[in-house]
Design a protein around this nucleic acid. Structure first.
Lengths: 372, 372
DNA sequence: TGGTACACTGTAATCGATTACAGCAATAGC
DNA sequence: GCTATTGCTGTAATCGATTACAGTGTACCA
């Protein structure tokens, strides 16, 4: 409680301890000092050095400043690996993504990174390129204690080999049924249904759908939303109006090419993500079909480029940053308190109306009505 | 050399060693087995267990299979932290980027990840959000031995505190003058100059320039390339035709708005990256200026969305994946052989001509000639 | 004056692997 | 038959921190 520390004469004398203390001087260039050497140089024990860094309040101010000074002079940085070994935590978290160059994922990652950073964690990037073996390899790093936890943005959730209730895993974006797995996601059925309702409200009746890979649960959900909306509006669902892509721009382009080649009639197009929608825009304009005058297009995700498409894309805005932040928060909660049950958290996704949608034209244009 | 192992009777008997061997059974659910327990269960020493995993050829086939079997049964995964501490390597490499959601960076990262993975390294993502303090914080992880090396995609190269010649750092994309720092980059002067020459060859004379942040060396180089090309063509360089952005889509849009508001005359526009070019396209079309009929636009980088812009963007294609791969290869070389001198490697960047550029219109349209 | 609490500090065990060194049999070489 | 080599294995030191436990000296209280 006193603010003036007592003077303790015997302490300041530098006394060298034990054998490990000194090193040959010529070595100094390549050498990283350890806690032992700092302790020796400051005339204290390793415990005291460690404590000045971990719990300064336990060390007298005098000793503390001396140790700080010595550390600075010798350029001491505690070895994180040694600390990790002792404390059994790495402050590392794996972010598992199918493809980092997809802007949707990279924005979710940014959210993850943000919360991670605020809490002293770093992100280990696991770009799996859709390869299940690589997903598993990254997951195994948890068992090897190379990382503390994992956030997956992939549809498959890898087995993570950790005994006991511990399962430091959060799934983001993709809904995972297993109640033991924490996840954050949007209601894809409702969001898709919402988007299609909007098209129906604009008077569209033939609404085509460009789906993502069928293996992905979110695609199943979005398709269900699409069908639900049609059914509720008593509009016929025509399987021939669905084309399957793989979420890439090119696949969206090809999907529309296919629909047009088959001479399907539609005045609106709902795409399971923005990149395919952007590909679709290109294919449509390539065939002389004007958007939105002849065909309305709706995407999904609201990536940064969506508003700069021509025309600006109407799309379902996923809260990308929030998905990442929330997922990371949940993971931190799991890490700090392994007992807590896995939570499921649903975030809102709103339709953002831009220039790629318009009321159905009076004449009822369709894909056969192209100007060329 | 014999393929049939001798039978050594005394060996197969399981003999428990020391005290650490067994654990209470009730603990088994939460417990991760260690090398000690595997050794005890297999009736061998820890050295032998470690060797079966690290250098199988040193261990007899009989012992080996036994240990493998025990490991599998008990679900043994070696603790990577302990290994890292002992071997003083983490097999982790930091990738320092200003912004992961920028598609240019994420594609370079993908290249890095690829080579890293092939060589048994993982990537620690350092998204700095342009914050020098965070750059430094990530760099300090090298000193703390949390990572083995670092690839920077940022203009500033952080000090990394490691004694001795060791400097496990490679800079990618941004040219760094310091000859002690390895880097991979394109010749930005030549590439920019090339792009502007192309515009000149199309007959353009008033060529505006949207620059990135002046602090970035690559921007300085691209601007120099722009000026060099103009000078060589005996075309006047007009400082009023340069607008400064920050590489974001929005800043490109604003830059063009500014040029138009100032009623600058230009028939072509060179942008320091694709995102700003995409913003520029939007601003131009917003003012009723047609691209490429009235104004030609050239970007830089060739990100994935460039070819899907409206019109498809003519741009300087950087070899993004190759930049990343080469940078990572150089880093691995540095890590394996700390003695090698830092190399500078220049990759080629080619102009990709798409729909956003055309010969100067006969009438000599300029920004005042807009249709509204 | 003796006892208790408090504020610091030191000793040594520990985390879980890797690996230098040594030991021991069986074989090879002479 | 004696030494050298080879093949396999074990003992124990080591990497560099953290931290439980055990002092030690001073202050405070009765």
């Amino acid at each position: 409680m006193r603010s003036v520390p007592k003077i303790r004469p015997g302490r300041t004398a530098r006394r060298a301890t034990r054998a490990t203390a000194s090193r040959p001087a010529g070595d100094s260039e390549t050498h990283m000092p350890t806690v032992r050497e700092i302790a020796a140089a400051a005339g204290v024990s390793v415990a005291t050095v460690s404590r000045t860094l971990q719990r300064p309040e336990m060390v007298s101010e005098e000793t503390r400043t001396r140790i700080h000074e010595v550390s600075r002079r010798l350029g001491y940085t505690p070895n994180a690996i040694a600390r990790n070994l002792r404390t059994a935590r790495t402050q590392l978290v794996i972010a598992l993504v199918p493809d980092i160059s997809n802007p949707f994922f990279s924005e979710v990652i940014r959210g993850i990174e943000q919360v991670a950073h605020e809490n002293g964690y770093s992100i280990l990037l696991g770009d799996t390129q859709g390869n299940p073996a690589r997903e598993q390899a990254y997951a195994n790093m948890i068992a090897a204690r190379q990382a503390d936890g994992i956030v997956t943005l992939t549809p498959r959730v890898p087995r993570i080999a950790l005994r006991g209730g511990r399962r430091p895993l959060v799934n983001a974006c993709e809904y995972v049924k297993d109640p033991d797995i924490a996840s954050v996601f949007i209601d894809n059925v409702a969001a898709a249904s919402n988007a299609v309702n909007y098209l129906l409200a604009l008077g569209h009746e033939e609404i085509a759908y460009v789906s993502g890979p069928q293996a992905s649960p979110i695609c199943v959900d979005r398709e269900r939303g699409y069908r639900t909306a049609l059914e509720r509006a008593k509009t016929r669902f025509d399987p021939a109006l669905t084309a399957i892509g793989d979420f890439s721009i090119e696949s969206g382009e090809r999907a529309v090419e296919r629909l047009l080649a088959e001479r399907r009639r539609f005045t609106a197009l709902f795409c399971a993500n923005d990149e395919m929608a952007i590909g679709a825009l290109r294919a449509l304009s390539g065939h002389g079909l004007r958007v939105p005058e002849e065909i309305s297009v709706v995407g999904f995700d609201d990536i940064r480029f969506a508003r700069y498409a021509a025309p600006p894309l109407t799309t379902v805005a996923q809260p990308k940053g929030e998905l990442g932040r929330e997922a990371m928060s949940m993971l931190i909660e799991l890490l700090q308190n392994p007992g807590v049950p896995a939570r499921k958290r649903v975030l809102a996704a709103d339709l953002v109306v831009r220039g790629s949608t318009a009321p159905r034209a009076a004449g009822g244009a369709d894909s056969r009505g192209g100007s060329r």
